[in-house]
Design a protein around this nucleic acid. Structure first.
Lengths: 159, 159
DNA sequence: ATGTATGCAAACCATTTGCAATGAC
DNA sequence: GTCATTGCAAATGGTTTGCATACAT
């Protein structure tokens, strides 16, 4: 994301808060900034740790409520593909591209790590699927298996 | 599933237990039968309730451990597409078709209900995807939105 | 001054685990 | 008789909730 896109997002989020008569707090600003900077998927704990490393400790409750706000704003989406914890991911660089993204995930069943990949054909195909009387909001394609790192570990174990 | 397929499965599971020197208990048999009869996805609580309605009360711990066994046997798969509870679904009518199935799910974000649908082209395409050094075991395509029933409810609310 | 946002601690709840009793072999 | 399996109850752990305090407006 370019610095300009980042600034636009921060301004747009400010406007979003104002429009909804919600307060502009340092906590909300801090979470938004980290969410905008991060690459790939992230959990509440991830953002908590990142902020803590900068000596800014927010409660997890605040982080969750801010995530909900940012999701409503329209640039992240909560993904529940592991029962253990919820992961969030950015769905575009502006609220306007929210609906356009249909992420595809590689999920390692050994270590739990996920990687977001894109396959234009697949995304287009899935976005085009229509089911009678079912109103699609978004899709998530999940590919489970063993990641390169765990594959290596398993190989060295066997030797 | 035909009665014949059902019997074949029960026999095959018996053989699976014997081969692994595991015990043939009434609990395991009961869970397997219900899992084989059920249509669509199911939770541990679902099977618990079904058995209880027949005056056979198993502990949830036993149901979970039997699910794990049946998953290893190869005819169900645990799906974690809701953070609240795990759903299992049959992946074929015999252990041999286990790998062939790559389910596609319609998930209602309003009521949580899921429906399994299949799209041959999509299944084939996704099964053909290859990622370097990532060993794919299975895939899950999830389509989120509002189901017909919830759509109707929303509509009548607005009137 | 007002009332929303935060942080703490407790609650939540499906699933897992430890352990004593049961029962398949 | 052995030892795997069951069932109970307690533990788990990410997320949510209730409430007192802090602070944006």
């Amino acid at each position: 994301m370019t610095p300009e896109q980042k600034n636009n997002l921060i301004e747009a989020f400010d406007a979003f808060l104002s429009k909804k008569h919600l307060r502009h707090t340092p906590e909300r600003r801090a979470v938004l900034e980290k969410v905008v900077e991060i690459t790939g998927s992230f959990s509440a704990a991830d953002i908590h740790d990142i902020l803590q490393a900068e000596n800014l400790t927010l409660s997890l409750a605040t982080i969750y409520s801010t995530f909900a706000l940012i999701e409503e704003f329209g640039i992240i989406r909560r993904q529940d593909y592991s029962r253990r914890k919820a992961l969030y991911e950015r769905t575009g660089n502006s609220p306007k591209t929210f609906r356009a993204t249909n992420q595809c995930h590689l999920i390692c069943t050994s270590c739990g790590k996920t990687r977001i990949v894109t396959d234009a054909d697949l995304t287009r195909y899935v976005a085009g699927l229509i089911f009678p009387r079912f109103t699609t909001t978004h899709t998530s394609i999940n590919i489970y298996g063993i990641c390169p790192s765990c594959n290596r570990k398993n190989k060295s174990k066997k030797q």
